[in-house]
Protein backbone atom coordinates (compact mmCIF):
# COMPACT_ATOMS: atom_id res chain seq x y z
CA UNK A 1 0.00 0.00 0.00
CA UNK A 2 1.12 3.45 -0.84
CA UNK A 3 0.99 5.55 2.30
CA UNK A 4 -0.35 9.05 1.88
CA UNK A 5 1.52 12.13 2.96
CA UNK A 6 -0.16 14.38 5.45
CA UNK A 7 1.15 17.90 5.73
CA UNK A 8 0.44 19.38 9.13
CA UNK A 9 0.65 23.13 9.52
CA UNK A 10 -0.10 25.74 12.15
CA UNK A 11 -3.42 26.90 10.68
CA UNK A 12 -2.20 30.30 9.51
CA UNK A 13 -2.47 31.54 5.95
CA UNK A 14 1.31 31.78 5.67
CA UNK A 15 1.59 28.24 7.00
CA UNK A 16 -0.78 27.02 4.33
CA UNK A 17 1.21 28.76 1.61
CA UNK A 18 4.29 26.96 2.93
CA UNK A 19 2.46 23.65 2.43
CA UNK A 20 1.95 24.58 -1.19
CA UNK A 21 5.63 25.45 -1.41
CA UNK A 22 6.55 22.04 -0.07
CA UNK A 23 4.33 20.12 -2.49
CA UNK A 24 6.20 21.74 -5.35
CA UNK A 25 9.60 21.55 -3.70
CA UNK A 26 9.36 17.88 -2.80
CA UNK A 27 7.07 16.85 -5.66
CA UNK A 28 4.35 15.50 -3.40
CA UNK A 29 1.45 14.68 -5.69
CA UNK A 30 -1.57 13.90 -3.55
CA UNK A 31 -1.04 15.12 -0.01
CA UNK A 32 -3.66 15.81 2.60
CA UNK A 33 -3.20 19.21 4.21
CA UNK A 34 -4.39 19.53 7.77
CA UNK A 35 -4.23 22.05 10.61
CA UNK A 36 -2.28 20.81 13.62
CA UNK A 37 -5.29 21.13 15.91
CA UNK A 38 -7.54 19.03 13.68
CA UNK A 39 -7.79 15.37 14.64
CA UNK A 40 -6.28 12.66 12.50
CA UNK A 41 -7.65 9.16 12.40
CA UNK A 42 -6.21 7.81 9.23
CA UNK A 43 -4.02 4.74 9.16
CA UNK A 44 -1.07 4.24 6.85
CA UNK A 45 0.05 7.78 6.55
CA UNK A 46 3.22 9.75 6.77
CA UNK A 47 2.84 12.97 8.69
CA UNK A 48 5.14 15.85 7.98
CA UNK A 49 5.19 19.01 9.99
CA UNK A 50 5.43 22.11 7.87
CA UNK A 51 7.26 25.01 9.46
CA UNK A 52 5.86 28.41 8.67
CA UNK A 53 8.50 30.55 7.02
CA UNK A 54 7.63 34.05 5.93
CA UNK A 55 9.89 34.13 2.88
CA UNK A 56 8.56 30.85 1.44
CA UNK A 57 4.98 31.95 1.94
CA UNK A 58 5.87 35.21 0.29
CA UNK A 59 7.32 33.48 -2.76
CA UNK A 60 4.23 31.37 -3.29
CA UNK A 61 1.93 34.37 -2.92
CA UNK A 62 4.04 36.42 -5.30
CA UNK A 63 3.84 33.70 -7.92
CA UNK A 64 0.10 33.36 -7.37
CA UNK A 65 -0.40 37.09 -7.75
CA UNK A 66 1.38 37.13 -11.10
CA UNK A 67 -1.13 34.67 -12.48
CA UNK A 68 -4.34 35.98 -10.98
CA UNK A 69 -6.57 39.02 -10.77
CA UNK A 70 -7.13 40.91 -7.53
CA UNK A 71 -10.59 39.41 -7.34
CA UNK A 72 -9.21 35.88 -7.58
CA UNK A 73 -6.66 36.61 -4.85
CA UNK A 74 -9.44 37.88 -2.62
CA UNK A 75 -11.51 34.79 -3.31
CA UNK A 76 -8.57 32.53 -2.52
CA UNK A 77 -8.10 34.17 0.88
CA UNK A 78 -11.82 34.08 1.59
CA UNK A 79 -12.04 30.38 0.81
CA UNK A 80 -9.12 29.75 3.13
CA UNK A 81 -10.93 31.61 5.92
CA UNK A 82 -13.99 29.41 5.46
CA UNK A 83 -12.09 26.81 7.53
CA UNK A 84 -14.22 24.12 5.90
CA UNK A 85 -12.60 20.77 6.54
CA UNK A 86 -10.43 19.77 3.61
CA UNK A 87 -10.62 23.20 2.01
CA UNK A 88 -6.82 23.27 1.80
CA UNK A 89 -6.91 20.49 -0.75
CA UNK A 90 -9.43 22.23 -2.94
CA UNK A 91 -7.23 25.30 -2.80
CA UNK A 92 -4.18 23.25 -3.68
CA UNK A 93 -5.90 21.82 -6.76
CA UNK A 94 -6.95 25.31 -7.66
CA UNK A 95 -3.38 26.64 -7.36
CA UNK A 96 -2.26 23.88 -9.68
CA UNK A 97 -4.76 24.96 -12.30
CA UNK A 98 -3.65 28.55 -11.86
CA UNK A 99 0.06 27.80 -12.07
CA UNK A 100 -0.38 25.71 -15.18
CA UNK A 101 -2.58 28.10 -17.10
CA UNK A 102 -1.12 30.38 -19.70
CA UNK A 103 -3.47 33.34 -19.69
CA UNK A 104 -5.05 35.13 -16.79
CA UNK A 105 -7.71 36.90 -18.74
CA UNK A 106 -10.94 35.03 -18.26
CA UNK A 107 -12.44 32.59 -15.84
CA UNK A 108 -13.90 29.40 -17.16
CA UNK A 109 -16.89 28.80 -14.93
CA UNK A 110 -17.47 25.34 -16.28
CA UNK A 111 -14.40 23.91 -14.51
CA UNK A 112 -15.49 22.27 -11.28
CA UNK A 113 -12.75 23.45 -8.90
CA UNK A 114 -13.07 27.02 -10.04
CA UNK A 115 -16.80 26.87 -9.55
CA UNK A 116 -16.38 25.48 -6.02
CA UNK A 117 -13.92 28.24 -5.16
CA UNK A 118 -16.22 30.93 -6.39
CA UNK A 119 -19.17 29.43 -4.53
CA UNK A 120 -17.37 29.13 -1.20
CA UNK A 121 -15.89 32.58 -1.62
CA UNK A 122 -19.40 33.86 -2.11
CA UNK A 123 -20.55 32.24 1.13
CA UNK A 124 -17.66 33.75 3.07
CA UNK A 125 -18.24 37.09 1.37
CA UNK A 126 -21.86 36.99 2.46
CA UNK A 127 -20.82 36.33 6.05
CA UNK A 128 -18.41 39.25 5.88
CA UNK A 129 -21.21 41.54 4.76
CA UNK A 130 -23.49 40.20 7.42
CA UNK A 131 -20.98 40.92 10.11
CA UNK A 132 -20.40 44.43 8.80
CA UNK A 133 -24.14 44.88 9.17
CA UNK A 134 -24.92 42.94 12.35
CA UNK A 135 -22.09 43.98 14.67
CA UNK A 136 -23.70 45.91 17.54
CA UNK A 137 -21.34 47.99 19.61
CA UNK A 138 -22.02 48.70 23.26
CA UNK A 139 -20.19 51.53 24.93
CA UNK A 140 -18.34 50.37 28.03
CA UNK A 141 -17.49 52.57 31.00
CA UNK A 142 -13.89 52.78 29.80
CA UNK A 143 -15.22 54.31 26.53
CA UNK A 144 -14.54 51.39 24.21
CA UNK A 145 -17.29 50.44 21.77
CA UNK A 146 -17.37 46.68 22.21
CA UNK A 147 -19.12 43.93 20.27
CA UNK A 148 -19.13 40.16 20.48
CA UNK A 149 -19.92 37.95 17.49
CA UNK A 150 -20.03 34.29 16.45
CA UNK A 151 -19.65 34.26 12.69
CA UNK A 152 -19.90 31.07 10.64
CA UNK A 153 -16.48 31.72 9.15
CA UNK A 154 -13.32 33.40 10.36
CA UNK A 155 -14.16 36.82 8.96
CA UNK A 156 -12.40 39.20 11.38
CA UNK A 157 -9.45 39.66 8.97
CA UNK A 158 -11.92 40.56 6.24
CA UNK A 159 -14.06 43.04 8.16
CA UNK A 160 -11.19 44.82 9.89
CA UNK A 161 -10.52 47.48 7.19
CA UNK A 162 -14.20 48.37 6.98
CA UNK A 163 -14.48 49.13 10.69
CA UNK A 164 -11.14 50.88 10.84
CA UNK A 165 -12.16 53.31 8.11
CA UNK A 166 -15.64 53.84 9.44
CA UNK A 167 -14.96 54.29 13.14
CA UNK A 168 -11.68 56.15 12.97
CA UNK A 169 -12.42 58.43 15.93
CA UNK A 170 -13.60 55.92 18.52
CA UNK A 171 -11.93 52.98 20.25
CA UNK A 172 -13.56 49.66 19.46
CA UNK A 173 -13.26 45.90 19.95
CA UNK A 174 -14.91 43.17 17.92
CA UNK A 175 -14.52 39.83 19.63
CA UNK A 176 -15.09 36.45 17.98
CA UNK A 177 -16.43 34.23 20.75
CA UNK A 178 -16.30 31.07 18.67
CA UNK A 179 -12.63 31.41 17.80
CA UNK A 180 -11.55 33.11 20.99
CA UNK A 181 -9.86 36.19 19.63
CA UNK A 182 -10.72 39.74 18.75
CA UNK A 183 -9.55 42.89 17.04
CA UNK A 184 -9.01 46.12 18.95
CA UNK A 185 -8.65 49.57 17.44
CA UNK A 186 -6.76 51.95 19.72
CA UNK A 187 -7.32 55.11 17.61
CA UNK A 188 -4.10 54.39 15.71
CA UNK A 189 -3.77 50.76 14.73
CA UNK A 190 -5.73 47.55 14.94
CA UNK A 191 -4.28 44.78 17.06
CA UNK A 192 -5.23 41.18 17.78
CA UNK A 193 -6.41 40.65 21.35
CA UNK A 194 -7.19 37.73 23.62
CA UNK A 195 -9.73 38.49 26.31
CA UNK A 196 -9.93 35.73 28.90
CA UNK A 197 -13.07 37.23 30.29
CA UNK A 198 -15.15 36.03 27.33
CA UNK A 199 -15.94 32.40 26.70
CA UNK A 200 -18.64 30.42 24.97
CA UNK A 201 -20.65 30.54 28.16
CA UNK A 202 -19.89 34.17 28.92
CA UNK A 203 -20.41 35.72 25.54
CA UNK A 204 -22.19 38.93 26.46
CA UNK A 205 -20.94 42.10 28.06
CA UNK A 206 -22.27 42.40 31.64
CA UNK A 207 -24.34 45.54 32.30
CA UNK A 208 -22.18 46.76 35.15
CA UNK A 209 -19.33 47.31 32.69
CA UNK A 210 -21.41 49.52 30.40
CA UNK A 211 -21.41 53.29 30.30
CA UNK A 212 -24.33 54.73 32.27
CA UNK A 213 -26.31 55.85 29.20
CA UNK A 214 -25.68 52.74 27.11
CA UNK A 215 -28.95 51.02 28.04
CA UNK A 216 -30.85 54.22 27.24
CA UNK A 217 -29.57 54.24 23.68
CA UNK A 218 -30.24 50.54 23.27
CA UNK A 219 -33.73 51.23 24.49
CA UNK A 220 -34.18 54.05 21.95
CA UNK A 221 -32.98 51.77 19.19
CA UNK A 222 -35.49 49.12 20.22
CA UNK A 223 -38.26 51.70 20.25
CA UNK A 224 -37.23 52.79 16.79
CA UNK A 225 -37.09 49.22 15.54
CA UNK A 226 -40.52 48.32 16.83
CA UNK A 227 -42.03 51.43 15.27
CA UNK A 228 -40.83 50.95 11.72
CA UNK A 229 -42.68 47.72 11.01
CA UNK A 230 -45.85 48.11 8.97
CA UNK A 231 -48.22 45.55 10.49
CA UNK A 232 -50.37 45.16 7.37
CA UNK A 233 -47.28 44.06 5.44
CA UNK A 234 -45.93 41.59 7.98
CA UNK A 235 -44.02 38.76 6.35
CA UNK A 236 -42.23 36.50 8.78
CA UNK A 237 -40.71 34.22 6.21
CA UNK A 238 -39.05 37.07 4.39
CA UNK A 239 -37.96 38.54 7.70
CA UNK A 240 -36.15 35.39 8.75
CA UNK A 241 -34.69 34.88 5.33
CA UNK A 242 -32.95 38.25 5.56
CA UNK A 243 -32.23 38.00 9.25
CA UNK A 244 -31.59 34.33 10.06
CA UNK A 245 -32.31 33.42 13.65
CA UNK A 246 -28.77 32.36 14.45
CA UNK A 247 -27.70 36.01 14.30
CA UNK A 248 -30.33 37.28 16.72
CA UNK A 249 -28.32 36.53 19.82
CA UNK A 250 -26.16 39.62 19.42
CA UNK A 251 -28.67 41.97 17.84
CA UNK A 252 -29.75 44.69 20.26
CA UNK A 253 -33.15 44.97 18.59
CA UNK A 254 -33.82 41.25 19.05
CA UNK A 255 -32.97 41.26 22.75
CA UNK A 256 -35.54 43.62 24.04
CA UNK A 257 -34.27 44.73 27.38
CA UNK A 258 -36.97 47.32 27.99
Amino acid sequence: MNPQTILVYDGSFDGFLCCIFMTYDEKITTPIIRKEYESNNQLFTISEKVVTEKNKAHRVWKGFKLKTTYHEQQNFFKVFLSEIKGVENTLLNYTRIIFSRTTNTTTDFSTKDILTISQVAKMVGREKHRMEAFVRFQLTSDTIYTATIEPDFNVLPLIMPHFKDRYADQKWIIYDIKRGYGIYYNLKTVEIVDINFFSRKKSKIPSELLSHTEKEFQNLWNIYYSNVTIPSRKNNKLHKQHLPKRYWKYLTEKNNIV
Binding site: H129, A133, A168, D169, I230, K234, L238, H242, L251, E253
Partner: peptide, 20 residues
Protein backbone atom coordinates in the same frame (compact mmCIF):
# COMPACT_ATOMS: atom_id res chain seq x y z
CA UNK B 1 -10.17 60.77 11.02
CA UNK B 2 -13.76 61.78 11.55
CA UNK B 3 -16.76 59.57 12.01
CA UNK B 4 -18.02 57.43 9.19
CA UNK B 5 -16.72 56.34 5.86
CA UNK B 6 -19.19 55.98 3.06
CA UNK B 7 -17.91 53.67 0.36
CA UNK B 8 -20.94 54.17 -1.82
CA UNK B 9 -22.43 50.76 -1.03
CA UNK B 10 -25.30 50.76 1.39
CA UNK B 11 -25.65 48.25 4.21
CA UNK B 12 -28.87 46.89 5.65
CA UNK B 13 -28.19 46.74 9.36
CA UNK B 14 -31.43 45.05 10.22
CA UNK B 15 -34.77 44.04 8.76
CA UNK B 16 -38.27 44.90 9.84
CA UNK B 17 -40.79 42.17 10.47
CA UNK B 18 -42.27 42.92 7.07
CA UNK B 19 -38.89 42.10 5.57
CA UNK B 20 -37.74 45.58 4.63
Amino acid sequence: KGLGNNTGFGICHSYTEDGR
